[in-house]
Design a protein around this nucleic acid. Structure first.
Length: 745
DNA sequence: CTTATGGGCTTTTTT
DNA sequence: AGCCCATAAG
């Protein structure tokens, strides 16, 4: 079991019973240490599989942990408490829903649901949402919950905070009324439950002797509180983390928890894993050099005894389309040499960047898989279907009710709903109940909708989950609606996919065959409880699965595919070949990060995470111009590029000076224009006032002198040209205004 | 009152 | 390029 572990790793795995902090650098075998430690604890008889808890942040990491464990243990690890913070808290609340004051079938709001709920609350409170953007309110509420604070505990410092606190209060009341919880609430409720209920607390404190925490640097105040609470009965916390990879401060994560944990728990027991087994020398050296620019660090330097490897290749192109094309060409060449496709990853800072890359890969006929972005359960048609399904369980769920009351259109408009809302507020009832008080034509339509829901609920009472889902998408009218929609084919396909997903889900759950819950057996039985569900209806289980695991956005279209994802999503993964794309100031580091304190340092850690995903080959790419939100933007290269030592880099393609002007060697110019002509993203010619401009065209400007057109966008008098001037660098000129003479081409 | 249509605004990252 | 909302037609 310990084969191939280095002394530090071995020490971590075989630590005696005590709290410990493992500072594990990127690629130092962190996941392996965690899984091996769990197996070791069990096999040496120091812990039973049910006396262990392992917490991760992502579902992916939890699955990874379980699969590594499965290979090493004689028992099925599935019933063990291994999962995400949210997943485990959900499990706790499902088992003890009554004690937590929740309905058995409580539903989970994702971010979009939550935002809709907040908008509704603001409307009900007659708040001018130009003064309070729903997003800001959402942010405020989540930040409060993440730090473990209820509305009544907030002492507002100004009028604005007083209002926000009041909204938090109202929103919470609304959630209670409707029987729904948001992500933050899962954690807060679970924590409060344990704090309040001494019997439960004692039970879980005695049960879990070992608590292992992955990615400890990403814990927020509330998660830390939850962990401390569980460990108060004498359990040992084995925390693994890397402060240099803390990239979730934006959602409340506090790296300070590591220092605090070290001080209060693991004072004498800190183990550093600094040998990197993943990346070759140049890559690792560049990562170290980059992260050294950060001020606040616990301090750590990774080393490797692998060779230097290849230098990091940097490519700068004129446009984002050219950047994508360059990447595709490079990938093709590697594939010809036998590179496995699924070992090639394309990383980007924001999801919007995937579109163009996907387009280029698709055109080249290269299979790819996108992780994250618009995921399956987040698609509009799926959300509609899920809303109907939620109403089968909980008619009070006004968010879902409003989502589908007029979809497909049933002649129920904003006006009627406003009236209905007023009525519901007056009698403090759900929207569904308020239907009775509505008169006139809209009353009839509303009653018809309620009958539809009721009928579906009755008819599906005894159905299995897949049949139930099929019945609901059919009888809700969704299927017919999308059949009639000319663009609806894909959506229809996804709805069918939902039925398959339900079938697959059932299969997976039946694997485990869980005992039914009775009130008296609640504490004893949880030992054998299914990961997601406890005596819960299959539908409720499926819905919480959908909320907590949004799923990938493509049905596994071929395993052997190029991997596309955000840098955040790539954390914890590794690939032979990594492309980090869009390395431009404003994009990476992202411009929004500049406003937040310590924002730049977090961006730098993000870049550090990106670099350290690569085993053998790393490519950094950027584009001088990029389409963003429908507009072309010009940017200079990322400052992070300038923080990487030249010795590890090899520049390909254009290279602009740090100041932003482009310095193009004459010999290169024609190559650039040839490349530019292949550009699919921008037009290749434009006519303004009877003058024809095309890419590659030579022009003369009265002040800037002679240059070459390297990019065109827009039409007519709004057209703009990106021109590479011989003397003054590249400029963007409006063709309707600038006076240009055509000289050659 | 509802539904269709075009203009304005937007998105950083995730459980 | 897509989503939400104000405006116009049924």
């Amino acid at each position: 079991m310990m084969d191939g572990l280095n002394p530090q790793q071995r020490a971590a795995v075989t630590l005696p019973e005590q709290h410990a902090l493992v500072l594990a650098g990127a690629g130092s075998g962190k996941t392996r240490v965690l899984a091996t430690r769990m197996a070791w604890l069990i096999q040496t008889g120091q812990a039973s599989p049910f006396g262990l808890m392992a917490v991760t942040f992502t579902n992916k990491a939890a699955r990874e942990m379980l699969s590594r464990l499965a290979g090493r243990l004689p028992v099925q690890p599935r019933g063990m408490w291994v999962g995400t913070f949210h997943g485990l808290c959900n499990r706790l609340l499902r088992i003890h829903h009554a004690e937590a004051g929740l309905p058995a079938d409580f539903q989970i709001l994702d971010m979009a649901d939550q935002l809709a709920a907040i908008k509704r609350m603001l409307k009900a409170a007659q708040v001018d949402d130009s003064l309070f953007a729903p997003r800001d309110v959402q942010y405020f509420i989540n930040a409060a919950k993440e730090s473990g604070v209820r509305a009544d505990a907030i002492r507002p410092r100004d009028t604005r905070e007083r209002h926000l606190t009041e909204f938090y209060q109202r929103y919470q009341a609304q959630c209670e009324r409707e029987g729904v919880v948001d992500f933050g609430e899962l954690l807060l409720r679970a924590t409060e439950l344990l704090e309040r209920d001494a019997t439960l607390r004692a039970h879980y404190q005695q049960r879990f002797r070992h608590i292992l925490v992955d990615e400890f640097q990403d814990t927020n105040a509330l998660q830390y509180r939850w962990l401390q609470l569980l460990a108060q009965g004498g359990a040992c916390i084995f925390a693994v983390g890397d402060d240099d990879q803390s990239i979730y401060a934006f959602r409340g994560a506090d790296v300070g928890n590591m220092a605090d944990f070290q001080r209060h728990y693991a004072r004498d027991c800190v183990i550093r894993l600094e040998q990197n087994y993943r990346s070759s020398g140049h890559i690792l050296a560049a990562a170290n050099a980059l992260i050294a620019h950060n001020e606040s660090r616990l301090g750590k330097n990774l080393w490797t005894d692998a060779g230097e490897g290849e230098p990091i290749r940097v490519s700068e192109q004129f446009t984002d389309a050219l950047e994508a094309q360059w990447i595709v060409d490079e990938i093709r060449a590697m594939l010809r040499e036998g590179q496995a496709r699924d070992q090639v990853a394309l990383l980007y800072r924001s999801n919007a960047q995937s579109r163009l890359l996907e387009h280029a890969l698709f055109s080249a006929g290269l299979p790819y898989k996108v992780t994250g972005g618009l995921r399956f359960f987040e698609r509009q048609e799926i959300r509609h279907a899920l809303a109907y399904l939620r109403l089968m369980l909980n008619i009070r769920d006004d968010t879902s009710w409003l989502r589908v009351v007029n979809f497909p259109p049933r002649g129920i408009g904003a006006r009627s709903l406003e009236k209905l809302g007023d009525l519901a507020r007056e009698q403090a009832s759900s929207l569904s109940e308020a239907v009775d008080g509505m008169s006139g034509r809209s009353g009839v339509s509303l009653a018809a909708f309620r009958n539809l829901i009721d009928t579906m609920r009755e008819r599906t009472q005894d159905m299995g989950l897949p049949e139930l889902v099929a019945h609901v998408i059919e009888h809700s009218g969704l299927v017919r609606h999308y059949e009639q929609d000319r663009e609806g084919a894909d959506r229809l396909e996804n709805l069918r996919e939902l039925v398959s997903a339900a079938a697959a889900f059932v299969l997976e759950q039946e694997w485990e065959d869980w005992p039914a819950m009775t009130p008296d057996s609640r504490i004893v039985a949880d030992v054998d409880m299914a990961p997601s569900v406890a005596g819960l209806s299959p539908l409720a289980a499926f819905l919480s699965h959908a909320a907590l695991e949004a799923g990938d956005n493509q049905a596994q279209a071929g395993q052997d595919a190029i991997q596309l994802m955000t840098v955040h999503a790539a954390k914890g993964l590794e690939f032979d070949v990594v492309f980090i794309t869009g390395l431009e100031d404003g994009l990476f580091p992202h411009e929004n990060s500049a406003q937040q304190a310590a924002g730049l340092e977090e961006e730098r850690r993000l870049m550090y995470v990106a670099i350290t995903r690569a085993r053998r080959r790393l490519f950094l790419t950027l584009a001088q111009s990029r389409m963003l939100h429908g507009k072309t933007r010009y940017s200079r290269r990322s400052r992070f590029l300038d923080e990487l030592p030249e010795a590890h880099l090899k520049w390909l393609g254009v290279r602009s000076a740090p100041g932003g002007h482009t310095d193009v060697p004459p010999a290169w110019r024609s190559a650039a224009s040839t490349a530019a002509r292949r550009n699919t993203g921008l037009g290749s010619s434009v006519t303004v006032r009877d003058q024809d401009f095309r890419i590659g065209q030579g022009v003369r400007h009265a002040r800037f002198g002679e240059g070459t057109i390297v990019g065109l966008s827009g039409n007519g008098l709004d057209a703009q040209a990106r021109i590479q001037f011989a003397d003054v660098g590249s400029k963007t000129l409006a063709l309707g205004i600038a006076k240009l003479d055509i000289i050659a081409g």
